[in-house]
Design a protein around this nucleic acid. Structure first.
Length: 155
DNA sequence: GCCAACGTTGGC
DNA sequence: GCCAACGTTGGC
């Protein structure tokens, strides 16, 4: 799951109540379908910083509430407002995620690109613009092996 | 700031 | 349903 740290960073997540946030504002149908149909309660996800100096995976989060309608689409004052989404037939969905672990060191996009075992990873495919994208179990394990985890559960 | 790649819109 | 124009994403 990608986020621009200037807009919402890992530090922001860590300051939330229960270190939990609603992953709202996704306005891409393919990403929406992952949020709505694919993501299960208890799934883990990488928390990725994009559009910044060093794009990288910085943490792991856990889905604590699976897909449900994104109310920011109904809010005229939200930057994510979409007049074409109505409450009877919501167009956009979100999930809630909770902080789980912070990586001891970020796994950078550059590192991921250099790893031939991750050639099929959607993140590194040219022109990829999905803000929510699937990671196979195999890819997940390869990426985790690229770095040691340091937990911050007791902070 | 540039620009490639892609998604969305809307006329036809 | 096609496709040109436009907007957005996101690495560099």
């Amino acid at each position: 799951m990608k986020t621009e740290p200037d807009t919402y960073s890992l530090d922001d997540l860590l300051q939330e109540k229960n270190r939990t946030t609603a992953w709202e504002g996704v306005r891409n149908y393919q990403a929406r379908n992952f949020l709505k149909n694919e993501i299960q309660l208890g799934d883990e996800a990488f928390f990725y910083h994009s559009s910044c100096a060093i794009p990288a995976i910085v943490a792991i989060v856990e889905v604590v509430r699976p897909g449900y309608p994104d109310p920011s689409a109904f809010d005229k004052h939200s930057p994510y407002f979409d007049p074409k989404s109505d409450r009877q037939k919501p167009r956009w969905f979100r999930v809630d995620v909770q902080f789980k672990e912070k990586l001891a060191e970020p796994i950078t996009l550059a590192q991921i690109k250099k790893n031939p075992a991750l050639n099929d990873f959607i993140l590194t495919r040219p022109g990829n613009r999905l803000s929510v994208l699937p990671v196979s179990v195999h890819q997940w394990q390869i990426i985790l092996k690229m770095n040691k985890l340091k937990t911050h559960k007791d902070r």
